Amino acid sequence: MRLLHTSDWHLGRSFHRENLIDAQAAFVDHLVETVRSERIDVVAVAGDLYDRALPPVEAVRLFGEALRRIRDTGARAVLISGNHDSMVRLSYATDLIDASGIHLRSSLEAVGEPVVIGDEHGPVAFYGIPYLEPAIAGPHWRLQGRGHPAVLGHAMDLVRADLAGRPPGTRSVVLSHAFVSGGEPSDSERDISVGGASHVPLSVFEGVDYTALGHLHGRQTMAETVRYSGSPLAYSFSEEHQVKGCWILDIGPSGVSAAEFAPAPVPRPVARISGRIDDLLTDERWEPYTGHWLQVTLTDPLRPAFPMDRLRERFPHTLVLDFAPDDRPPADDRSWARRIADRSEPELVLDFVDWARGAPATDEERGLVDAAFQDIRLGEVAR
């Protein structure tokens, strides 16, 4: 059996207000072509199908199209909900959808009940464990323990109990959306620590042949049989060096016999660059970045005028602008109360102007600030 492991599609997500639906549609094209060319039998999608519980119409349309096209290749698909998805909405009509070969697993009641798909070596049991919110899953199962380790540990106990009752030689694949200890996060995953400890030990997945993980956006091999596929696109600038794609695995009579990573197309690279604005606008070494989505950090001693407009003349896809002067004075470690003890209100406003712009206020601006506070005092006296 050939398995394709993907996750964290986040359909409907934007990137610093840039609509990504076309890039996500291009990934779906790539995915379907990979399923066809690699003769994939089962596509496993480990959660965060959408970017939010109520996705936009165009994301729902793309999701439906992706499922139809996967089905048309002759492959089956097993999918779970992630922490960005609505567990209830994705579990709607799953018993009817199952008949098409598309298996959505998004309920607590179905944990431990596998989708069984056979090949020439016998059955493979696919166990879908959706993202488990401890505050919901714990009371549902009447667990004494708290946090993600408790609820995911119980879910895996249900999986192992079911697997133990199946015919000898039954192979097993678990889909899970979780943060495994030792995994490397990026800036684009939503924190799942609310409700208890967020990390789960790798050992929780013992006893199955392969675990297809979702949640972390960079591909990672936690163990030979426990992997993150990562997201198909970069969703933060912290992912600038990550190679996106999916895992393709061969499952033989004794479990996983081979694994390779298939890179996905990059619609537009992301990068972080820094320097003084004149250097960034003139030096040839920055030319390769003119087509990137960029986070730019300016290191000029004084904040330049109209920096975003100027940068976008050379780098039209600049999305984020930061300012970090390279000759900034040492940080003042005094308490806030001590720093303002001898400063008047107008002086505090002028201090802010100096900090925000990187240059002191002009005489005209000082006059405006003084006049504004004078008006405030006169108004207080009149009352």
Rank of each mutant, 00 (worst) to 15 (best):
V124A: 12
I97M: 14
S193C: 10
P130V: 02
P201V: 02
S100N: 08
H84G: 01
V174C: 14
V159M: 06
R142Q: 15
G145P: 11
D191E: 12
A110E: 06
G183M: 05
A77N: 08
S100L: 14
F126V: 05
L132C: 13
R71Q: 13
A155K: 01
S188F: 03
A77R: 03
D119R: 04
S81A: 15
E120D: 14
A137M: 07
S172L: 04
A197I: 09
A155H: 05
V204H: 11
S186R: 02
W141S: 12
A135T: 11
L90I: 06
G118A: 14
G118N: 12
N83F: 04
Q144C: 09
L79K: 02
R166D: 14
A135E: 11
A75I: 08
S176R: 05
D187I: 03
Y127N: 08
L132D: 12
R171K: 14
T73S: 09
S91Q: 07
M87D: 00
P149G: 08
L104Y: 05
S203A: 15
P185G: 11
V111A: 00
S203V: 06
L175N: 05
G196P: 09
D98S: 12
A137Y: 04
L108F: 15
L163Q: 09
A161V: 04
L132G: 13
L202T: 06
S100P: 07
A99I: 10
P139K: 04
S81W: 05
H177Q: 09
I80T: 13
L202I: 06
R68Y: 10
H103K: 07
D162A: 10
D119I: 05
P201F: 04
G196F: 09
S81K: 05
D85W: 00
H103F: 15
M87H: 01
S81N: 12
A110I: 02
G101T: 08
T170A: 10
L158E: 03
L79G: 01
Y127L: 11
R71P: 07
Y131Q: 14
